[in-house]
Design a binder for these strands. Structure first.
Lengths: 253, 253
DNA sequence: CCGTACGCTGTACAACGTACGCCGTACAGA
DNA sequence: TCTGTACGGCGTACGTTGTACAGCGTACGG
């Protein structure tokens, strides 16, 4: 947040970094003590440890401390904090296991994609907060995109989807998956939902008039209880996935 | 990001603020020069001006400058930055026009809800970045929740949805709406998508092998062109909404 | 053997949120 | 009318952030 107005980093440099396109690089001077992959790996570990806001909270100084170098040293590996975050994201995408589902029915294929992304969100809670409107365009994201588009081959054939709709359908599936991940990690309540609600109950009791807000009070209580009782921790997930598949099935006619 | 570890603010205080539950407040001392609503209104304007990251970028100091007071003065109105953001969010929810659709078919009712939220995201680009897992529990959010749950009355009857599923269905609709807003405001490209892509094209051309990523290259190009050509600026939106309605229709059987 | 390119880093600056304590005001009680 | 005090406002200061800049030392190319 603080002072992130840079002179404007060359996008080409960032892309070259993502795709590991080395430039000539004369051999003068001391050898590098770290390599980019090590930096990104440590950054990922740090972000993972930081919970849902781990990537946003990832600081250059903390990473440098972790790596045993001075903060400014990292700037010889990476243009800045933002680009570091891009590298972390793309590396996480690259590391996703991708199940080969060619030949299976489209429902199975889409379910597999959804589950791979669910696993991503479990491994990296910050992933659900990555801005989906700002593509990274790295090798990891590209491979993920290719793999996931392939899972739509059958459906696209059956439903006669053009490329734009194929992209929209994938986006649709991923959106719901990401939203379910956000619900699952339940920022509200943190590690002790009961205490969270208990702290708010007195005021809410005074203020939440069941006559003004009948549905809100009733449904909110039911939804809250269901989520926190862990009877069905992933109810929203399965509901959303089923709805996505049904919604896409309607395209097949 | 910087130094936001507070002594831990009382949640009850925040709720009281949201619901405008005034405490006795002796009449000693000088009268207040501002009122909470004015502060929140200015904060909203500032956040709106800040684009998609306007709420995250909203700073106490900038708001104080805008209001013509010293930064610390704001702390007599609001416990801190976080609570200020909550107030802004809840005020935006409260200000949403809510179309009365009682009696209409469930598809019309759900579409109305989706469009109201779309309007919200257009008026306040930062709204799509608000963490949906951390409910504000203010009067605005509550009224919004009540109104939107009401739109599901017919569907819930027809499909026999219990309260948990009713909440899940609403979440499903809102998720897709929010995701469509994120796409629409297109953080990628900003105000000049052509220049954005042009800056990346050289490296991408070298690196995006159509043999390794056939679908990604083809579909990505199609989707990118469609979005930027403004032929169908809201294609993803209508696709998503149609899929949501179809997916929920499957519940009716 | 020297010049130079390059890895590394100490210092510094602007921005942030906010704790602390002071100052002046204006009402409550006498 | 006078005085004590509660309270709004805010100046200062600290710790945090990202990163620009300039210098230092190293190790290879000529």
């Amino acid at each position: 947040m603080c002072h992130d107005d840079r002179v404007a980093t060359d996008p080409a440099r960032t892309l070259a970094l993502l795709w590991r396109v080395e430039q000539p690089a004369g051999t003068r001077g001391p050898r590098r003590g770290l390599d980019l992959d090590a930096v990104v790996a440590r950054a990922t570990a740090l972000a993972d440890a930081g919970g849902p806001d781990g990537l946003a909270g990832l600081s250059v100084r903390a990473l440098a401390r972790e790596l045993g170098v001075a903060p400014m040293t990292l700037y010889t590996y990476v243009p800045g904090r933002e680009e570091l975050a891009d590298l972390v994201v793309d590396a996480a995408y690259a590391a996703m296991p991708r199940k080969d589902t060619t030949g299976l029915g489209w429902r199975e294929r889409l379910t597999a994609v959804a589950e791979e992304n669910r696993a991503l969100h479990r491994a990296h809670p910050w992933a659900a907060r990555v801005d989906p409107g700002r593509p990274v365009l790295g090798p990891g994201e590209t491979a993920k995109y290719e793999h996931e588009l392939a899972a739509f081959d059958e459906l696209a054939d059956l439903a006669g989807l053009d490329d734009v709709d194929r992209d929209a359908a994938l986006t649709f599936l991923l959106d719901v998956t990401r939203a379910a991940a956000l619900v699952e990690q339940q920022s509200a309540g943190g590690d002790d939902p009961a205490a969270w609600w208990a702290a708010r109950a007195p005021v809410l009791g005074q203020v939440l008039d069941p006559e003004r807000f009948p549905r809100a009070v009733r449904v909110g209580a039911a939804a809250g209880a269901a989520q926190q009782s862990a009877r069905d921790p992933d109810h929203a997930w399965r509901f959303g996935l089923a709805r996505v598949l049904d919604g896409l099935a309607a395209l097949v006619g």
